[in-house]
């Protein structure tokens, strides 16, 4: 067969530019979206860092050596292999802290996505299937969650209870379930009317069985797509909270805290703030590619077949 699945970003975008540079850019971009090898490698690297932080990091992320403070990265004059990404104002190894930072971001985003995703999906399923007051109540709750200014609420909660990893996770879950609930509800409304669900009902299947065996598989794809697209924004939010001093406790090696620490020493040691930002950028890009890729994967309509 000479038919090959080629990714086309949108039906409108199917003409290739004649300029060779643009053409290479477009083809490269389309190829990366279809086979996101580099973004996935970044995500795998992040996961490996998170799991094996102790084994991978060359130094203790918390203990510094003041005599080695402000060592520049390896590619600059005075850099050493001892500290490939340099050290901060307390002489702590930036690479080791960045590796441990991957762990903090992974813990937070995994916990929030799992709790928010599962909670939101169940609420969306029940609301969409049952309709009536259950649906009304769920959708009102979604509206309220959307309208609440997250950061301000987070600030006032943290000033009362103090910073902790658990508190940040709870806050992010409370503000992170609504998207799942809204989309799953909309899909459930459609699936509920489909013939196979009616047959299951006629056959005498229980409500739980219909929801979890018949409707859930139909929405799982969407949930995974939303989940992976959410991770990027979650990592951005978490790093912002940490930067402001309302995220994880101040001694934790988190990317936002590293960037904040380096701010006072910007003129002397630019790398302290810069490196964690690069890490955040790479990971967020990675998750966005993953989300797009999953969306194409689960939605065959977007995987247009083109005769080559």
């Amino acid at each position: 067969m000479s038919i090959e699945a080629t990714y086309v970003p949108s039906p409108l975008d199917d003409t290739l530019p004649s300029n060779p540079v643009l053409r290479a850019l477009r083809v490269g971009w389309a190829w990366t979206r279809r086979y996101p090898v580099v973004p996935f490698a970044v995500l795998v690297l992040m996961l490996v860092c998170a799991i094996f932080a102790e084994q991978l990091s060359p130094h203790d992320p918390l203990r510094g050596n003041l005599r080695a403070a402000f060592t520049p990265p390896i590619f600059m004059d005075g850099g050493t292999w001892e500290h490939p990404l340099g050290t901060d104002h307390q002489g702590r190894d930036v690479l080791s802290r960045a590796i441990y930072g991957a762990r903090i971001s992974t813990i937070i985003s995994t916990a929030v996505i799992l709790a928010g995703g599962i909670g939101g999906t169940v609420i969306g399923l029940v609301a969409g299937y049952r309709g009536g007051w259950v649906d009304q109540a769920a959708m009102r709750a979604v509206d309220f969650t959307l309208a609440m200014p997250f950061l301000l609420v987070a600030l006032v909660v943290v000033v009362v209870f103090g910073q902790s990893l658990e508190l940040i996770i709870v806050l992010l879950v409370l503000f992170g379930w609504d998207n799942f609930a809204r989309v799953v509800r909309a899909e459930t409304l459609t699936l509920r009317e489909s013939d196979y669900v009616s047959y299951a009902r006629i056959q005498g299947a229980s409500q739980a069985r219909i929801l979890f065996r018949h409707i859930l598989p139909g929405v799982v794809g969407t949930v995974l797509v939303i989940g992976s697209l959410r991770v990027g924004s979650l990592i951005l939010t978490e790093s912002t909270l940490s930067f402001l001093g309302v995220g994880v406790p101040p001694d934790t090696p988190a990317w936002g805290i590293m960037a904040s620490d380096g701010r006072q020493h910007l003129s002397r040691a630019w790398w302290i703030s810069t490196m964690p930002g690069v890490a955040i950028f790479l990971v967020v890009m990675g998750f966005n590619f993953l989300g797009d890729w999953l969306r194409d994967w689960f939605d065959p309509r977007l995987r247009q077949l083109r005769v080559q």
Binding site: G256, A259, S267, T274, G277, I280, F281
Partner: peptide, 22 residues
Amino acid sequence: ALLGQSVPVFWIGIMMILIFSL
């Protein structure tokens, strides 16, 4: 647009200070 949506706002600020001020 992609760049603006993939990096934290505080980092954009810090990088601007680093480049245009310092």
